[in-house]
Design a protein around this nucleic acid. Structure first.
Lengths: 176, 176
DNA sequence: CCACGCATGTAATCAGTTACATGATTGC
DNA sequence: GCAATCATGTAACTGATTACATGCGTGG
């Protein structure tokens, strides 16, 4: 249900093609929303069929950028003001942490160091994104909220991973 | 694929029934993993069929607690050491933030205050969970990692929501 | 004795992923 | 000319949710 809203949100911010969205879902937006191109393309067609978005002139290489319609913006507003957010999440880092007692402290440390590196890299990317925002634009002022949320969560993940590495190092040997 | 691992992780920590797991998925574990009971029950049967978990004596009211097998623990270890974690996530709070420019600053504020209250409440619950851990147990030392991750992320969400409320209050009127 | 929460399950549907297919443009 | 990347799509399958169904045990 919310893939629709993710697509509307992105296209409302600026016109985009399915390919653009696929790239973002696979990159900077990985912590917000993600979907495979094979799910994105048919959903865009459905949204266009309901007049929530509209195809702009087809570009080169068969590129099809969409823009939001008035009806699409109304749908976004109804979603934001009329429904409440679903907070359920699936976090594999947290899940794996609960199972770490089954492996050696050394192996647990390997996992945590990998997590630390991953989140540090993501944090760098997210900070770069923040610097690229133009806060005279309403869209970018809203995007700042989303990006700042990402930054604070990534900072939390980095500090957690640093703490966890120290913590696991103090576990008794052969405790698994 | 990872529902299996979530079930194995929980059952490895302590024997549990499908009902127990359903309750946890709907409560404290909402930020780690979640699934509806209708998905949990058949998956537990499949895991039992593969000897990764084993049914203990059936309890009252048809209750069926499962415990982990040696093969199940081996499967967990193989997962932790042989595969890397999937970091993709769907975060509706972040998604909605990107769309907030389409509604009035007052409505945006309503949304953010609701988020703040939700995350404060979850943070209280998570801290209580942390206090209940018995750190002489290897399972609980690992659980501490997961719980601490949850706490730090919730703290990040609370501080973000507080900041975002201030930020939105400074948006120009009628900017949507 | 009956309402409520415990406890497990099936069937139908919807969301999401994987495997496969195709063609256009750009840079070397 | 050809490899890499851009760009869109379909079909089959797996994961997840919704709607429905059933019975047990405890407390009032």
């Amino acid at each position: 249900m919310s893939l629709r809203m993710a697509l509307l949100t992105l296209i409302a911010g600026a016109p985009r093609s399915g390919y653009d969205i696929g790239q973002e879902f696979d990159g900077v937006l990985k912590f917000v929303w993600h979907a495979k191109p094979t799910q994105v393309y048919p959903e865009l067609k459905r949204l266009a069929g309901e007049d929530l978005i509209r195809e702009q002139d087809t570009g080169s290489r068969g590129r099809k950028p969409y823009e939001i319609t008035e009806k699409g913006v109304a749908e976004l507003r109804a979603w934001l003001t009329g429904t409440s957010a679903d907070h359920s999440q699936r976090n594999e880092t947290a899940l794996r942490s609960f199972a770490l007692w089954t492996v050696s402290p050394a192996e647990a440390g390997d996992f945590l160091r990998e997590e630390l590196e991953y989140h540090r890299a993501r944090l760098r990317g997210m900070r770069a994104l923040k610097n690229g925002l133009d806060l005279s634009q309403a869209q970018d002022r809203a995007a700042l909220l989303g990006v700042e949320l990402g930054i604070r969560r990534l900072e939390a993940m980095v500090s957690w991973a640093e703490w966890a590495i120290e913590n696991v190092a103090a576990w008794p040997e052969g405790s698994q």
